[in-house]
């Protein structure tokens, strides 16, 4: 449960970080405006750090650090796979990050 929730949070953070890069933004939301790169980066990093702190609090430091590293790795992988095969699934996240 905890692991799944943190994974989703990390996957969201990684997607935000990926969308702060032009290459990925173009694939997901090219025709719909420009990304707020700074917001995307800040959001991504904040949530990643939050998930680390949460895991350390919830699972203790030694499990927490290892879990975070492995879950983040899985989240990066999942983001890369989504961008490659199903980029349209990231449109809702792109909508949040669009410059208005």
């Amino acid at each position: 449960m905890v692991v799944t929730a943190v994974f989703l949070l990390c996957a969201f953070s990684c997607s935000a970080l990926a969308l702060s890069q032009d290459r990925h933004w173009r694939i997901v939301a090219a025709q719909n405006g420009v990304a707020r790169k700074d917001v995307a980066r800040a959001l991504g990093w904040t949530l990643l750090i939050f998930s680390l702190v949460f895991l350390i609090w919830r699972e203790g430091p030694s499990f927490g650090v290892l879990l975070w590293g492995m879950i983040t790795a899985l989240a990066i992988f999942a983001t890369a796979i989504l961008l490659a095969y199903r980029p349209q699934l990231l449109k809702p996240i792109a909508a949040i990050l669009r410059r208005r």
Binding site: Q21, A73, I76, F77
Partner: peptide, 27 residues
């Protein structure tokens, strides 16, 4: 720049390298 990059539709050698890089970075 390549952190989240995997391009399965490119040429076989590029795909191999992408996958190698992705697995390397992730793990």
């Amino acid at each position: 720049a390549d952190f989240f990059t995997f391009r399965p539709t490119r040429k076989a050698r590029r795909v191999t390298l992408d996958l190698h890089n992705l697995m390397g970075v992730v793990g």
